[in-house]
C-alpha cells in the first residue's frame, strides 16, 4: 500500500474545499450555503496546516522549542475556537453545510486512504502476493 503523507491529505483537503463549495452553490443555488461550507472547510484546512507546521517544528529540531509548545499550540486552538464562535454568533450560516465543511479533514483522510488502497503500486503488490 502506498504510504500516506501529510501533503497528500492537504492536497485532498484543498480539492474538497473547492469542489464542495462549488457543488454547494450549484445544488442549493444560494450563496448562504456556499459561505457555510467554504468557511467551515477553510477553518479546518488551515487548522490542519498549522497543526502540521507546529508539530513538524517540534519534532524536526534538535530539541523541543518552548515557544512552539507553550505559545503556538494553545494560540492556534484559541484562534480556531474564536473563529468558530464568531462565525456562529455573527454569521448567517446553514448549520448542516457548516458541519459538512468542518468534516473536510475526516473526508480527506478517508479519500486519501482509499486512493492509497487502489493505487497501482498497491494493486501490483497484491497481485504478486506481497
Amino acid at each position: 500500500m502506498k504510504e500516506t503523507t501529510i501533503s497528500d491529505i492537504e492536497r485532498v483537503n484543498l480539492i474538497i474545499l473547492l469542489a464542495g463549495s462549488a457543488l454547494s452553490v450549484l445544488i442549493m443555488r444560494e450563496f448562504k450555503y456556499f459561505f457555510s461550507f467554504a468557511v467551515g472547510s477553510a477553518i479546518m484546512t488551515l487548522n490542519f496546516r498549522f497543526l502540521k507546521n507546529i508539530i513538524m517544528g517540534l519534532t524536526s529540531g534538535s530539541g523541543v522549542r518552548k515557544w512552539d509548545l507553550i505559545i503556538k499550540l494553545p494560540l492556534k486552538f484559541i484562534i480556531l475556537a474564536g473563529l468558530v464562535a464568531a462565525v456562529i454568533m455573527f454569521g448567517d450560516i446553514n448549520v448542516v453545510f457548516f458541519l459538512l465543511g468542518l468534516s473536510t479533514v475526516f473526508i480527506s483522510i478517508l479519500v486519501n486512504q482509499i486512493i492509497c488502497m487502489v493505487s497501482p503500486a498497491a494493486k501490483r503488490r497484491q497481485k504478486d502476493g506481497a
Binding site: N47, I55, A85, L99
Partner: peptide, 19 residues
Amino acid sequence: TPMIIGLAMVESLVIYSLV
C-alpha cells in the same frame, strides 16, 4: 504522520461539540 492525522481527527470532534 499518523500522530498528526490522529490529533486532527480528535480535535475535529471537539470542535463539533463546540459548534
